[in-house]
Design a protein around this nucleic acid. Sequence first.
DNA 1: CCTATATGTTTTATGCTTGAAGTTTATTTT
DNA 2: AAAATAAACTTCAAGCATAAAACATATAGG
Lengths: 147, 147
Amino acid sequence: MNSSASKQRLRLWLQLLKTSKHIETQLRNKLRLEFDTTLPRFDVMSALSRTPSGLKMSELSDQLMVSNGNVTGIIDRLEADGQVQRVSVDGDRRATRVQLSLAGTEAFTHMAQAHEAWVDELFQSLDETDLASIESSLAPLRKTPHD
Amino acid sequence: MNSSASKQRLRLWLQLLKTSKHIETQLRNKLRLEFDTTLPRFDVMSALSRTPSGLKMSELSDQLMVSNGNVTGIIDRLEADGQVQRVSVDGDRRATRVQLSLAGTEAFTHMAQAHEAWVDELFQSLDETDLASIESSLAPLRKTPHD
DNA sequence: CCTATATGTTTTATGCTTGAAGTTTATTTT
DNA sequence: AAAATAAACTTCAAGCATAAAACATATAGG
């Protein structure tokens, strides 16, 4: 029962969480002030922008790691605002594919540019060595142990 | 405009976020299944447990980095369940101090023990060198640049 | 076939979260 | 001391989030 390593892991987790929250807060504020939008909406649009042909609802919730019902709500609102559209998937009448509309693509292009610059600034303190080392340390954390 | 470092920072941010979300999901599930509680409730109780004399509402929202109104709601529910109690602060009738009740302290003791073990397991892949190096890299991210 | 089971999405109930506005009490300014 | 300002909470409206149930369509197995 290596209690000291255990405590240190716990402390790292709390710091990881706190850091994420801090960055999220910064980005949320900027998105609201400069583009009058929210982080969840931005995240959804970002995922969609990487696949112009669109993503199924379930693919969206997988990628964003949020529940299905959650995605339904966000897409409902984005669709009402004309930023995305639901199109039917042929060959499967259960599924829906969601894609950015023209307006959505246009809006996202501007936001993405600003967003990248904000992140760049927030992460200024890290040089390429730090980046690579943290990335490689984080990767195994996303694998569930022993299964 | 060092675009490559900028892209790498963005990628790190997305991975940081994804990692936090993954860990949070694991912990949330275990808290629900084993203790029938939620992560926000656990976080509040954890903060309170570190200061038996209690914390003011504003101290809680500072520490947890959530809004005031949010804390009000969580404390309302915890209080209704007898896990915490609001006590008045003498010398300032605006403020409230919140502290764990006897039942809350008892419940938290069990949860904290399990929680530490879960985190220890989720972070197994990191040894003390990794832990120290990540901790020191993360710290500057929580300082707002130039101010 | 046709029943069972699995998949894709939405709905429902409840709780979390935010930002802004409101209330009450303290502190500062004039 | 009165008026302005600030601080500590709570309330409110809207959106985000989850888990579980419901619904609709697909895919298998007998």
